[in-house]
Amino acid sequence: MMFCAVVEPLLDLYLDDRLVPVQARWVEKHAARCHACAAKLAAGRRLKAALRGTGAPAMPDGFKARLLALAQAMPSAKALAEELPSPDLRPSAALAFGLAALAVFVSGSLLGPGLPSQACSDSGSSVCFFGGRDK
C-alpha cells in the first residue's frame, strides 16, 4: 500500500502515545485496512509487553550494606572501595561484609587490605536472569 512507508516510522510513536490525535487516527485508519502494518503494530505491542514484563534479580544480600558502609566512610569512600576485595559471590560473604561494615562503623577509618567483604550475588553464577512477563 502506498502509505506504508509513511506510516511505518509512526508505529512505534503511536504505541508510545507520542502522536497528536490526528496522526494517531491516521495510523489507526491505515492499520485497519493494511494487514502488513496491522501485523507490525501487533508485533510492536508484543515486544513492548515482553520488555515491560521482564523481571530482574533481587539485590544481593549485603550489597546495600556495602553501599551504606561506603557512605559512612565518606569522604574516603573511594579509597575504601578500592581496598575492599572484589565480590566473591559466596553465601557466607553477607555475614563477612556485615562484620566489615561494623569495623568501619567502629573505627571510622579505612579498612586494611584482605578484609572480607561482599557486594554481589550469593550464587556461584554472576549472570542475571530476566524472567517473566506480565502479558
Binding site: 514484563g53 523481571g55 536472569f129 502479558k135
Partner: peptide, 28 residues
C-alpha cells in the same frame, strides 16, 4: 546472554511453573 538464577525476581503475573518456565525462556 542471561541465565536463570536463584533469587531472581520475576515480573508481576509470572503465574504457574509452566508459565514461569516459558517466561524464563523469553527472559533469556
Amino acid at each position: 546472554p542471561l541465565e536463570p538464577e536463584a533469587g531472581s525476581v520475576p515480573a508481576a503475573g509470572a503465574g504457574s511453573p509452566e508459565r514461569a518456565a516459558e517466561n524464563s525462556e523469553l527472559g533469556r
